[in-house]
């Protein structure tokens, strides 16, 4: 009697390599592994190109590239601070509006609306998430900008004009408008992800609270939301990553002014918008290099935010499965 070793396929010792090659399995494995390696290489190449092509600007300015307040291509001076501020502020405005409204809508869809209504509205909202950003930009230019100018900017200034952030002249195109448009764009995304997270909360949790005499709202607020908390944070982070990198819609309504201004009603600029506007017109290696360095900053920013988001979402879903 012989004692066999492992019979798992990797270790099957007696099937010769030649035979497996003829059988085709090794060839198939080689092809798909090569494809996977190709994806890794493409991604590596992306980082490499960004790093190398931004070399001139990184050497010239170092970290002061990010903190520099002047962006003057004619003078050869490139500081990205106004754009970093613009990107951050527009994204923050977007989240401030979209997260409460989106989570509220998701609660309604997941907890209160009849399943059919919920599914139908979720379907519509997912379609809205598929609308290209340039179309949001188009709507922004022709609808949102005039609406903001007349219905929002004016009253805001009249009521709160003593605050620096609502001071100064307004034209409709502004940091605030860009933030509102971004909010509209990430809303469908937040609603659809939050709704799924809420739906994955076990029914027993709700029933337990209801059986103790809690109202519908108390159940939602005290039991369901805490349970789904991390998933909802995750959706907000993913939305943030989208907002940070969003280019077209912002470019079309933010006003594109590299001047750093306190007022949200004034035109601003974002990292992605500068790249979109100036890349094809950039003359001189340093200018192009500075724009690519902006791309690198944006890349780094989204990598960090996405990483955090995935950690949050992953930890929720593992906990959810553990409970099941």
């Amino acid at each position: 009697m012989r004692v066999a070793g492992s019979t798992s396929p990797e270790h099957a010792p007696t099937t010769s390599l030649r035979r497996r090659l003829l059988g085709g399995d090794e060839i198939a494995r080689f092809i798909v592994t090569a494809a996977a390696a190709g994806i890794l290489i493409a991604c590596g190449l992306l980082v490499y190109e960004l790093w190398v092509s931004s070399g001139a600007a990184r050497h010239e300015f170092g970290w002061s590239f990010i903190t520099g307040r002047t962006w003057d291509p004619n003078a050869g001076e490139f500081g990205a601070w106004p754009f970093v501020v613009g990107t951050t502020v527009t994204s923050a405005i977007a989240l401030l509006i979209a997260v409460p409204a989106g989570v509220g809508a998701a609660i309604f869809l997941a907890e209160l609306a009849p399943r059919r209504v919920s599914d139908f509205l979720a379907f519509c909202i997912e379609l809205l998430a598929a609308v290209p950003s340039v179309i949001y930009g188009l709507l922004g230019v022709f609808i949102l900008v005039p609406v903001m100018k007349v219905l929002v900017d004016g009253p805001l200034k009249a009521a709160l004009g003593w605050l620096p952030i609502f001071s100064g002249p307004f034209y409709g195109v502004s940091t605030l408008t860009a933030g509102v448009l971004l909010a509209l764009m990430v809303l469908p995304f937040i609603v659809s992800v939050s709704r799924q997270v809420l739906l994955s909360v076990p029914t027993e949790q709700r029933e337990a609270a209801l059986a103790l005499g809690a109202t519908r709202w108390e159940t939602t607020w005290n039991v369901v939301l805490p349970y789904a908390k991390r998933g909802i944070y995750g959706s907000a982070f993913l939305a943030l990553a989208r907002a940070l990198g969003e280019t077209m819609a912002v470019t079309m309504v933010i006003g594109n002014s590299p001047q750093l201004q306190a007022s949200l009603l004034a035109p601003g600029y974002s990292i992605a918008a500068v790249v979109a506007n100036e890349f094809t017109e950039a003359t001189g290696d340093l200018y192009v290099s500075a724009l690519i360095a902006l791309g690198l900053v944006l890349f780094g920013l989204t990598v960090v935010i996405n990483g955090l988001a995935r950690l949050l979402v992953a930890s929720t879903s593992t906990r959810a499965t553990a409970v099941q």
């Binding site: 994806i39 992306l46 190109e49 092509s53 990198g245 992605a272 791309g295 989204t302 990598v303 996405n306």
Partner: peptide, 21 residues
């Protein structure tokens, strides 16, 4: 990990990459 990363890269950055490449 890498595909997730790639999925999160802003489209304008992808544009820069294709430009350089």
């Amino acid at each position: 990990y890498v595909t997730d990363l790639l999925n999160g890269v802003p489209s304008i950055v992808i544009g820069i990459f294709a430009y350089a490449l």
